[in-house]
Design a protein around this nucleic acid. Structure first.
Length: 195
DNA sequence: CTTGAGATGGACT
DNA sequence: GTCCATCTCAAGG
């Protein structure tokens, strides 16, 4: 399917999540390019694990807002997590970006992760939602960023192939742990925790 | 290989 | 106060 800008995100959250596998995240021109290999869908109603489950709050309001914006939050006192808002205005939904495979800019990413010593394989530079944000320099300052606006520092380009997608329950949550809302590029080494 | 605990801050009850 | 969509490292099997 052709990329039609915001329309891509203005759809069912699970559909968007699946189609984001294999999509490319481009930063600062194409200085850094990474291919998404692991995402999770977070819904609104009936999804106890979603920040939107308890309704509209100062933090969750962005999940109810316009699709195609970044939702970045801070967890565990030290990590950021990045989501892409889905569904039309008024309906909550977002896709957590959990892991990506670096295609360009590995050195840039490595330098952002310099604080954490030790050699990390290129494969694992953006593995896990916290590492994904750290490696790409995404912080709460990016919360609300419109990835559909021309010239946004972060853009998303849909996959140019049809990847083999593996489905599994989500990770690191305490509620609604059964739902199969985690989607991965099957067998990819960048996946944070193997299925 | 697996398990557990610490770091650390903000949202929410 | 309590909970948390995490990561890393160290200890144990």
């Amino acid at each position: 399917m052709a990329f039609t800008g915001r329309d891509f995100f203005d759809r069912d959250t699970v559909t968007v999540a699946r189609e984001l596998i294999g999509a490319r995240v481009c930063l600062d021109g194409d200085t850094v390019v990474a291919r998404l290999v692991e995402v999770e869908a977070y819904l609104g109603e009936d999804d106890l694990a979603s920040h939107a489950y308890r309704g509209l709050t100062p933090r969750s309001q962005i999940m109810f807002g316009e699709p195609g914006h970044l939702y970045v939050y801070f967890v565990y006192g030290m990590h950021h997590c990045a989501n892409l808002v889905t569904e039309a205005r008024g309906k909550a939904g977002a896709v957590l970006l959990r892991a990506a495979a670096v295609e360009q800019g590995a050195d840039t990413i490595r330098s952002r992760r310099a604080a954490t010593g030790g050699q990390i394989a290129d494969d694992r530079l953006l593995s896990g939602p916290g590492n994904f944000c750290r490696g790409l320099g995404i912080t709460r300052d990016d919360n609300g960023l419109d990835v559909c606006s021309v010239g946004a520092r972060l853009r998303v380009i849909p996959a140019d192939d049809v990847p083999n997608i593996a489905t599994a329950p989500r990770i690191g949550i305490r509620h609604n742990t059964e739902a199969a809302l985690r989607f991965c590029l099957a067998g990819h080494p960048a996946i944070s925790i193997p299925i």
